[in-house]
């Protein structure tokens, strides 16, 4: 784990890391990865990847509209909104 990787990951996850904590975080991440790397000792080539620890299958829905119009309530709890839309800082492609 190097500084560049940590910078990329923190950008991708939108988590800001304080400069002084960076060294410690790199060390922590290295430890975690080393710990998890122990799994590499086990041969898993014939084992299907586990998608969920519960060995069950999904319950599904029939195709029905059950939602109510919550427009006002939802817009109200947003950090910024007007009467019609959620508002965010301008995003331009």
């Amino acid at each position: 784990m190097d500084k560049k990787t940590v910078t990329t990951i923190s950008y991708l996850s939108r988590l800001k890391i304080d400069g002084e904590k960076e060294e410690k975080i790199i060390k922590d991440l290295d430890n975690i990865i080393e710990f998890v790397d122990q799994l590499d000792d086990v041969d898993t080539s014939n084992i299907e990847p586990l998608t969920n620890p519960l060995e069950k299958t999904a319950k599904t829905r029939t195709d029905e509209v059950t939602a109510k119009n919550l427009k006002n309530e939802l817009l109200e709890i947003a950090p910024s909104s007007n009467e019609d839309y959620f508002l965010v800082p301008r995003v331009v492609e």
């Binding site: 839309y85 959620f86 508002l87 800082p89 301008r90 995003v91």
Partner: peptide, 12 residues
């Protein structure tokens, strides 16, 4: 919606 609001983007 990018072009409706000044300096902000609306989301539907």
């Amino acid at each position: 919606i990018h072009d409706l609001f000044d300096g902000e983007t609306g989301v539907d």
